[in-house]
């Protein structure tokens, strides 16, 4: 099972004031708050933990089949990774009840992209992230899907014009070829000027 989340750091800085009173307490555990306050770049620390939780959440709703909004129940294990070397990918873990979700985060100066998986060491069919010139929601939505279709088409030889994405009642997206639901999982994320997605074949349950 797979999920992903992307954060545009510049937009997050502008549109989300995590420094306002009670914001951190609503979202982060005591340990996570300590991790943030000890970080040299607190903005990056906040959004790194946030993207891990969001990506892990997307894995978990596939498993549980119902949606919830309890960011503190998704606990990032903060001792195992830091972002000192921004060129590398950071491995991490998020726990939810007794389940462990594995995360891989790419932290750059402009965005953070996290891919989450229920099982370790499965290489996704496709992982992608990119810059979108216009950052309105409707354009992001369209451009991200088009990008995904073209990439999937290049890998599988499927015609782009037959591809579509439909969401189930839990808002989990599925890829369709004509009216045939494809046996794979996908996760799409966009925020500000950045978009990302991941596709995985479902042999990994």
């Amino acid at each position: 099972m797979i999920g992903n989340d992307i954060v545009d750091l510049e937009i997050a800085l502008k549109e989300s004031n995590w420094r306002r009173p009670r914001f951190l307490q609503k979202v982060f555990t005591i340990e996570e708050q300590q991790y943030i306050s000890a970080a040299s770049d607190k903005d990056k620390a906040v959004w790194l933990l946030w993207s891990k939780k969001e990506a892990a959440y997307k894995v978990i709703i596939r498993h549980f089949g119902s949606r919830f909004f309890r960011p503190k129940d998704l606990v990032t294990l903060t001792n195992i990774s830091d972002y000192k070397d921004s060129s590398s990918l950071l491995d991490g873990q998020v726990s939810f009840r007794k389940q462990i979700i594995h995360t891989t985060s790419r932290v750059t100066d402009t965005f953070i992209h996290t891919v989450a998986q229920a099982h370790d060491k499965v290489t996704p069919l496709l992982v992608n992230f990119f810059y979108v010139e216009k950052n309105t929601y409707a354009i992001q939505h369209r451009v991200t899907r088009q990008h995904l279709f073209e990439n999937y088409s290049a890998v599988t030889g499927t015609s782009v014009k037959n591809l579509s994405i439909r969401k189930n009642a839990q808002r989990v997206p599925y890829l369709y070829n004509k009216d045939q639901r494809q046996i794979l999982e996908l996760s799409i994320s966009h925020h500000g000027h950045y978009a990302g997605y991941v596709i995985q074949s479902t042999c990994d349950r």
């Binding site: 004031n17 995590w18 914001f23 969001e54």
Partner: peptide, 12 residues
């Protein structure tokens, strides 16, 4: 289409 970080703002 409110993003989830802003959902926290709405709650506050």
């Amino acid at each position: 289409k409110i993003n989830s970080a802003n959902l926290v703002d709405i709650i506050l």
